[in-house]
Write a protein that binds this DNA or RNA. Structure first.
Lengths: 265, 265
DNA sequence: GAATGCTGTTCCATGGTGTTGAACAGCGTT
DNA sequence: AACGCTGTTCAACACCATGGAACAGCATTC
């Protein structure tokens, strides 16, 4: 473990969306390091664009980090294979579409086609969220063994976000059973009020869940089963992404896209 | 300058979209460092999620970088203010919409609402592009003094990407004059064949150009002046983003959105 | 099946370098 | 004008990053 590198990373991690700009004094009061040490590290990070100076007396994360994200493995291997399908899905559904990556404990949003109905200004890309409260997360949990599900919720907990969030293990397992039966998971404002989602799991060549994709809308009708072909299209897209990741279903799937848009694949 | 931090950054910079996964041997042949040094640094970066191991014998950039990008200054200050407007614009235009940040020499794509017409699978977000060959870049150049324009093209050059790319200073200055007159810039397949764009500049409180937004389509009709209200809507959005960044136009603007969608702002 | 070439990994002594408190400088406030 | 607050620089000491060499794990090869 190289200490100066760890310290440099700790400094970068102090910045947040809420506090994108910090003075040296603010950084030093949040970290157990002398100001001069922080100053040296900041100068080094500035030289490579990882940190930038704002207004002569405060610091912020620089744009080099955004450039680097293009080369992150999951972006090159998962996102770039999934993106064209997700864009089509967004166009058909006229709703926001999200792609997430499962890191073993949480999901990380790695791609989005966001419709104007999205409530939050900030894009979801880059956000890390619990599994139990999202359609994406539950579609992944539904693809894991009950033991692994219990293991994950033991580690991460089941914090409440809204009045509909599932906060105990039994409710979750019941919900996962119906998700498994449907083939996709549903989120009824469990993470964010005013946001309803459908989520479907994505698997790799080994059949393991590696992420998910979801449709997200501000209208409850999106989660009404059978009211439209959205769930079928979502499942088709998730299955096609899995196929592109090397997944070969044990029983050849009968899924076909409902929308004619997908016929050319 | 802390050398171990510089080395850690150099290691991360070796990864690219084309080569997202590298073995220790591959990294060491691209960098003038002994394998053991690289190994130590990799272990440190792994401990914080900046690097991850793939398949036991190769390394890749980890997801921590994607999470960090949420806190990057331009994302918090520019992107999050612009995103809602850009989503509406994308919905009205039914084309891809992009937001870029001007770093002094290049533009960096920081947000996108990508339509299914986009040719490339990869998202543009994170890409760094020359100014002279994009609508976004030219709208920024048109807002700078001729001296600064010359200074920038002296530093970055004017590489050719397609048969329509402007590759000499005089052509560029003529083009910038008409962009200035129109109020927005146009890209006729100058960066990528099959991609036509309209771009408009975004200014900060000091009136300086800090970025741009653009509409991008696969159809030439998008750049046909006056054929539709897209340019007017784009200009309205760019102006409204500038306003949210603190810009106060010298002469109160008469611009109004053509589409009724924007009336509620 | 032993030997060879390749990986990635670990070890450890050495000297380079990161660390640090203290001193400096630049501003705004008092 | 003196003070308190910034960010910045300095230099000496101790620590720790460094990188050669040795190890281990695994294919491939002869």
């Amino acid at each position: 473990m190289i200490q100066s590198v760890l310290k440099a990373i700790d400094i970068m991690t102090v910045f947040s969306t809420e506090e994108p700009c910090l003075t040296l004094a603010q950084i030093s009061e949040r970290l157990p390091m002398p100001k001069s040490t922080i100053h040296h590290l900041l100068a080094t990070l500035i030289s490579r664009g990882f940190i930038e100076k704002v207004n002569d007396d405060s610091y912020a994360l620089g744009t080099a980090i955004v450039s680097l994200s293009q080369a992150v493995r999951v972006n090159a291997e998962l996102r770039d294979r999934a993106a064209p399908l997700l864009r089509e899905l967004a166009e058909i559904a006229k709703e926001s579409v999200y792609l997430t990556y499962f890191d073993g404990s949480y999901i990380l949003y790695i791609y989005a086609v966001e419709s104007s109905k999205r409530l939050m200004a900030r894009t979801a890309v880059g956000e890390q969220v619990h599994l139990h409260c999202t359609a994406n997360g539950k579609s992944i949990l539904a693809a894991l063994s009950p033991d692994r599900v219990d293991d994950i919720i033991r580690r991460t907990g089941m914090p409440r976000f809204t009045h509909t969030t599932l906060t105990n293990s039994e409710d979750l397992h019941i919900e996962l059973a119906s998700s498994r039966q449907r083939g996709y998971a549903v989120d009824r404002e469990e993470h964010e009020l005013g946001t309803f989602c459908l989520g479907a799991v994505i698997r790799n060549a080994a059949g393991e869940p590696i992420g998910g994709c979801s449709l997200s809308g501000a209208d409850e009708s999106i989660v009404h089963d059978g009211s439209n072909g959205l769930a079928a299209d979502l499942l088709y897209v998730a299955q096609e992404i899995s196929r592109r990741m090397g997944y070969v279903p044990a029983t050849p799937s009968l899924l076909a896209p409902k929308s004619a848009h997908f016929v050319h694949h």
